[in-house]
Computed example of a mutant assay.
Amino acid sequence: MKVIPYIESEGCIGCGICVEVCPNGVFVMSSDKAVVMYPELCNGCGICVENCPVDVITLKWTDL
């Protein structure tokens, strides 16, 4: 089992903070929204969750 970030895309305001703060480059911006592009690179640190101003990022367990 591994932890990966999940973004509730409807609530994303496209600020790009998660892209900036993620130490592993998990996120990219696409069509003015943040997207989890490389979930396998996530180390589960939670920096993205802590810094999201609209609280739309959560960490979830997966079998990835």
Rank of each mutant, 00 (worst) to 15 (best):
P39I: 01
V35N: 01
D32I: 07
G16N: 07
L59C: 06
C52F: 00
P5M: 04
N24M: 13
K60Y: 11
Y38E: 09
G11K: 12
C48G: 01
C18S: 06
I47D: 13
V36T: 08
I17K: 03
V54I: 07
K60L: 12
C45R: 02
P5N: 05
D63V: 04
K33P: 01
C52D: 00
K33M: 08
S31Y: 09
M37C: 14
V3H: 13
L59R: 04
E50W: 08
V21C: 09
E20K: 15
C15A: 07
C15I: 02
S9L: 14
K60M: 13
D63N: 12
C52Y: 00
D55C: 11
I17Q: 02
E40I: 06
E20H: 15
V3Y: 15
V21K: 06
E40H: 12
L64E: 10
F27R: 00
L64H: 07
E8M: 09
L59E: 04
I17P: 00
G46H: 04
E40D: 15
G14S: 07
N51R: 14
Y38F: 08
K2H: 10
E40N: 13
V35E: 02
C15Y: 01
E8R: 11
Y6V: 14
D32C: 10
V3W: 14
P5S: 06
V49M: 05
V49E: 02
E20C: 15
I7E: 02
L41H: 10
L59G: 02
G46Y: 03
V26K: 00
I4K: 02
N51G: 11
F27K: 00
K33I: 08
G44D: 13
D63F: 04
I47E: 14
N51T: 10
L64F: 12
I13V: 13
G11E: 09
C15P: 01
S9I: 13
E10C: 09
C45K: 03
G25A: 09
Y6K: 15
C45Y: 02
P39T: 04
A34G: 11
S9G: 10
C15L: 05
G14K: 05
K60N: 14
V54K: 08
I4Y: 01
I57S: 01
I17G: 01
C45H: 05
L41I: 09
P5E: 01
V49C: 03
Y6F: 15
E10A: 14
C18N: 03
V19R: 04
K60V: 14
K2T: 10
I13S: 14
G44T: 10
E20D: 15
S9F: 10
E50Q: 11
S30Y: 11
F27Q: 00
V56N: 02
D63S: 10
D32P: 03
K2D: 07
N43T: 14
M1Y: 12
N43D: 15
M29S: 08
I47W: 10
I7P: 01
P53F: 04
I47P: 06
K60P: 07
